[in-house]
Design a protein around this nucleic acid. Sequence first.
DNA 1: TGATCGGCTATGTCGGACATAGGATCGGAT
DNA 2: ATCCGATCCTATGTCCGACATAGCCGATCA
Lengths: 265, 265
Amino acid sequence: MSSAVSDTRRSSGPEIADALAEAIFAGEYEPGDFVPKELDLCKRFGVSRSTVRSALQTLVAAGLLVRISGQGSRVRALQEWHLLDPRVSGWMARFAQPNPRIQREIFAFRVAVEPYVARLAAESATAADLLAIESAYQGMIRALEHEDLHWQGVSHDDYDVAFHEAIFAASHNLVWAQISHVLKPAIALLVERSNHSAVELNDSMERHRRVMEAIRLRQPDQASEAALAVLERTGRDLGLADLIPRVPSIEVPTTVSTTTEKEAL
Amino acid sequence: MSSAVSDTRRSSGPEIADALAEAIFAGEYEPGDFVPKELDLCKRFGVSRSTVRSALQTLVAAGLLVRISGQGSRVRALQEWHLLDPRVSGWMARFAQPNPRIQREIFAFRVAVEPYVARLAAESATAADLLAIESAYQGMIRALEHEDLHWQGVSHDDYDVAFHEAIFAASHNLVWAQISHVLKPAIALLVERSNHSAVELNDSMERHRRVMEAIRLRQPDQASEAALAVLERTGRDLGLADLIPRVPSIEVPTTVSTTTEKEAL
DNA sequence: TGATCGGCTATGTCGGACATAGGATCGGAT
DNA sequence: ATCCGATCCTATGTCCGACATAGCCGATCA
């Protein structure tokens, strides 16, 4: 048992935390269980108690553990985990792939959020933002043309992720930008798992292009729809398509208070 | 200088991190600056290096600091801070009150998000969720009637925050629930700063009631509108009303793919 | 003048020790 | 016999002192 964490080489801090996180995400220690005590972890990883404590503190900060004085370190319930911590998000993408519930809920979140963020981007993207978006898009194109050789180690998927990140950044809102950092690992995971046939890729590229174009032309409604269309393709590729129509994206209320769409700048 | 952090009493771990965070948020140490080295902090707080290192590690996990071996601990740029970490969110609410940009952007985020979450809640709230929402609502009422004496130390504001939290929980989505934890301190801050005149409170209560009723009756559209109306009042009280019409909430696309509203369960 | 070498600073890691919190156990009193 | 309290035990929290290491700066030398 516990084959995942048995490395003896000196790996300093973060790698120990990673190993423990992997074990937790793999279900080796379930919520309510206690992870091994500090001294055992010292022996297992061949490091001192300071280092182990440092790693454990990382997991506490991530909300994965509670440390009870005199008792041990207990795995917390799933709801308590800080899923919005980029570290946790990264672990989830790497280790929790088979967990369908989490994948579904994150995708549902993206379906709600990304069209709205695209709308914001259409309203307030600067030239610099457009450049970042277009660079990512061109990178995706180039990576497709020189299919086998990854352009300088940067693959099509990397550009795809960068494309989505650039749109979040273009929203010019601190909170949404943070959320893109959190979503990044999840997006990366979905991108690399979605299908890669030629037809699908062409379709996907066209959908991405429409998002970019709508943002450039300051067309919030079209940007929102186009972003949803991108997710629709991804969802179809991964069997999550049922989340698309039922969980709509963020809305423009049609109440009377709505002033005419302001053409800023 | 640095009058904020000069307490000598034994305060163990978290309070030292809090004191440092307060100093950073107060601008005592700006991005790029170095905070005092470990040994100085030991002397200042009267604790050992282990304790200081523990506190510093908390700030690193929050994204406020980078620790460079042999050089010191440097304050990171604002964009790097993990604003979605509940701890950071709490510090922000407590210490960064005068920062109008952050307040505005967080409120803009709420305006986008809360109506959509209310919609989700209307679609999938269970009886238990309704109970939680209604309990918070009744608590607000009781706290108003016995105005001066806080009911068992729980004030009207606390119930208000709990009301919003319960709605997030009723969305039954891990990510949205997390976001409520993050928003909680910000909500608490806004709630306690908004006006408390009798007329305004009555108006506010009526708006809250409409949200609750719409969720109970499974009316997503009404729930969304009602949630926006609650925020509209808050925004008006705090001079953020201009964010309401311009930054609409998450949308139901009116594309053909929308199936008929599903009456779940 | 410029590149390499050495020293300096502050963090990273180590090992051992004691204090403390929380649970379990065992005992006494009703 | 049951209930309650004092005691022991375990594992974490804190402390101390020491050395290793990373990164910067200045001095030295070609």
